[in-house]
Design a protein around this nucleic acid. Sequence first.
DNA 1: AGGTTCATGTAACCCGTTACATGATTTC
DNA 2: GAAATCATGTAACGGGTTACATGAACCT
Lengths: 188, 188
Amino acid sequence: MKPQETSLLGYAMLGILQQQPLSGYGLRKIFAATPLMAFSDSPGAIYPALERLQQRGLIRGRIQKGSGLRRRRVFKLTPQGLVHLRRWLEKPVTREDVVRGADGLLLRFSFMDGGLGRAHSARFLQALEKELAAYIPGLREFLKSPPGEMPLSGRLALESGVEGYEALLHWARRGRAVYRKELRGDAL
Amino acid sequence: MKPQETSLLGYAMLGILQQQPLSGYGLRKIFAATPLMAFSDSPGAIYPALERLQQRGLIRGRIQKGSGLRRRRVFKLTPQGLVHLRRWLEKPVTREDVVRGADGLLLRFSFMDGGLGRAHSARFLQALEKELAAYIPGLREFLKSPPGEMPLSGRLALESGVEGYEALLHWARRGRAVYRKELRGDAL
DNA sequence: AGGTTCATGTAACCCGTTACATGATTTC
DNA sequence: GAAATCATGTAACGGGTTACATGAACCT
């Protein structure tokens, strides 16, 4: 039994709060306005999640009521929260991560520059490339010899999945090239 | 309050059971063996789900114990179950479907040949193309003018999402071409 | 006889969804 | 002063995860 797991939503909130302290409503607005990060902006998800993070000492909220504003609780990371986030960002890229789908990995990556620095982001992409390059051939193999003939639509659907992974691989390669350029110019 | 929603897992089971009657264990093996359909093969997910589907009259299981086999319940769709599945497959492709991600759409599509026939699969791809073509430019726009500067890794992560949609669009176009060829040769 | 695979279940927990509720503040 | 927006919550429900439990059949 793992001591305390944090959901993707939880990490998403930690990642955003690390960039800027925000109220629950502020988080909702971000989730609602950002396509491609499919987190719900429903209060029923966010406020309890904030409560849980605070209970675990990862964030702290203080009521802000200066100058005629409505009362709102602005949350920011605690030092432990920052450690927790970093620990997550630092996790190695495993085959399992890849199998589960791109969402978790991309969420991690999106906070990586801010949480660990660009050099680490580049290394993450490299690790991702390696896992993908090792994973994809097996998928292609599976497509070639499916257990029991499947209908055309079924086969096409699987193909779409494989191509999704291939697109991710190409993206990772291109992304790493961008980092190479950036880091060359940077202080290092 | 919608009367009774069916989860993706439920539809996945209906779709598979439509192709071939199977036991809970049989479903587990399929889920475990098929990459790219990220359904858990855990009994704690499957057996309760089967129970729910049966309760709603969508499937019926009968105990099979011929010839020294261990007892096992083999499930098959009821007529209502088939209707329920078809109703789901027939749903129009909405923007919301696209926003939620490809998973649900691809699951639907993968059962479409068997549930509704190839002509319908082709039309589904056409509708999907249309939605994607309408959706993607907005994402590109969002990428161009992000609200508040974001770190490089954040921007790249979003880009990956957009490219995923673009890959899906290309796949749909190619898939439709395949159906055009197939249907030309078919009885029609 | 003992381990592996087959096969079905159950219980506790977590957490996201949906819907409802409340009130302050700004805007028209 | 009515409507819209800001802002925070709560309660019921559903369903997936993890872990545990059980036992038959098969293999060695």
